[in-house]
Design a protein around this nucleic acid. Sequence first.
DNA 1: TTAAAAAGGTTAAGCGTTTAACAGAGAGAG
DNA 2: CTCTCTCTGTTAAACGCTTAACCTTTTTAA
Lengths: 342, 342
Amino acid sequence: MGASLKEIAERVGISAASVSIYLNNPDTNRVSAGTKDKIDKAAEELNYRRNLFASSLSRHVSKVIGIIIPTNIPLFQNVYTNMLLSGVQKCLAGEGYSLLFFPSSASTSKENVREQLRHSAGCDGYILFSTGFCPMDHILLNIRELQDTGKPFATLNVPKVPETINQVIIDDLESVRGLEFLLNAGHKKILMVLGRQHGEHMQLILSKYRLMLKEWGIPLDNDLVIFGNYSHEDTYLKVSRFLTSRRDITAICCMSDLMASSALAAVKSTGMTVPGDISIIGRNNSLYAVLADPPLTTIDLSISEAGFKAAQLLLDSLENPSISRNIILNGKLIERSSVNEN
Amino acid sequence: MGASLKEIAERVGISAASVSIYLNNPDTNRVSAGTKDKIDKAAEELNYRRNLFASSLSRHVSKVIGIIIPTNIPLFQNVYTNMLLSGVQKCLAGEGYSLLFFPSSASTSKENVREQLRHSAGCDGYILFSTGFCPMDHILLNIRELQDTGKPFATLNVPKVPETINQVIIDDLESVRGLEFLLNAGHKKILMVLGRQHGEHMQLILSKYRLMLKEWGIPLDNDLVIFGNYSHEDTYLKVSRFLTSRRDITAICCMSDLMASSALAAVKSTGMTVPGDISIIGRNNSLYAVLADPPLTTIDLSISEAGFKAAQLLLDSLENPSISRNIILNGKLIERSSVNEN
DNA sequence: TTAAAAAGGTTAAGCGTTTAACAGAGAGAG
DNA sequence: CTCTCTCTGTTAAACGCTTAACCTTTTTAA
């Protein structure tokens, strides 16, 4: 198929080595100007393009980063993950790196990562994404697998990862900053709309939640916590069902803007108003929040920035594998019009 | 670093070939049961994982598909592209293929694709995405580049590609089906909110638009066409500005749900109601449409299905490079509550 | 005039896997 | 007792590219 260096070399009448030398460093003085022209011409005519794999094999460097997302639900459907990816890609592409996404059919995050890594040797490094619903033992196993590759890697918002590992995390306090804001605004009966119940992330958030209620002297009411799966249908259904039985809440705190938008729709469908009757706060500062009516107060988690930084961390440790860095990103509250004082 | 076959072989006391043979085909009878166990043990202990690049080089097959998106604006930020990607990935991952995204710093789509392809030899095939704002000559050049690789490829919603090329397209009529629906509902003064003005896609849509107006005997009014860049801010601004000068329209037809949501916000901000004063129709059937208030009538383009099919096409032609197929997908109208009879 | 340096290459080994071809030892068939 | 399988391997080349080391010939400097 594609022409090889050797074919170019033959056509020009020189050795493949010379062609390689020139193509990899056009300014070289080990190839004469005339020969350079001939190489260019031959390469053009033969449609030469360098074989990434052969080149990587020889150089021990591939300029390819493996993206490890420990789930086999379809990729590219989740705003949160997409924003992370966007940041990662922006940084990596800027430095000339390619991104590789591996297939995996395994359904548990444990097996899934193992399978993705199985045929991955050759990448220069990896970025491990958090999916939010990995239990802690799986997380630890995933990290272990990654370490075993012997390649540098960084984790992206994976909770409770040892400090010796390159990581960027979005401070967990942020998860309840929305709650804090609502409490400050005088709300006492607040419905929490969280993500998947099992998974380390949610456990952290839950404990923060309980702690904060305690600080404010508000009694725990387990009915006021809804676990969901971040989808619209699910959230709409659960919030609607909740509202048929109880109307005493004055605010809803959601773990994503999408869920906040769904909650908003559910509230509106009962005839209640936002923020008149019920205040709503989201999280992520995604487009969903700005497009909602009323626009949603939310927490900007600088998600794509987190992705960018994780990629930076990885590239750093490609240069200097011995150092490892942790970056903690803080969210900031974006006030719009979905929250009233109570 | 990562252990190699040779290291396993040494530890077990056999040749690397045997290890390879066993690992690639665990049922082989060219390795004894005892040896198999030893290999497993050694592979486990040494954290062996196969080097994708070396393996691909040797086998002439990599199980890697290159994703070519002719733009260097950050990836993973556009719902439309993400939905396409999602379908592509779902199909490819299901068949054990990895996805490779190449970097490129070039800003014109022409140079951009060339650069992405430059170091790509080794992939089994490619999928070329449409960005919607490529001019025709760039498209043709891109296709040419792809052909020059000698590898199979498929194009995904790239307009006017020769029939001999694997492609899935979303029928262009769909682009104006929203318009048709509004006309049928009795609207005559319809604001069109389109995408980028230059680019083959938009030219096609424009001509369909003009044709349809002519059929309905409605005079052309160039002020009723707004070109945008698919972003919220831009759309909101342009529609708002439009509404300050003219209020005689009864409907808005948008090329994406996001733009429709932005238009909706702009309309609401003037105090007018949807669909009371102005009807709005979107396109894509994305979450934006279902979350909007009122939920938007839209055109379901089965985008992720298009991605899936393109991947299927590619895999087919990996098996049988001689055949090529075209798939045309039709959109269907999803009626919700943003359009009134006029 | 001579030594050193520059110019313009070449050779050959190596990267980690795969695979066609080969081969020795034992078992079973005739 | 020989022939042919079957088992269980091994060898060596190949994939396409890179790179350290080497080699002429020509130019330059002193």
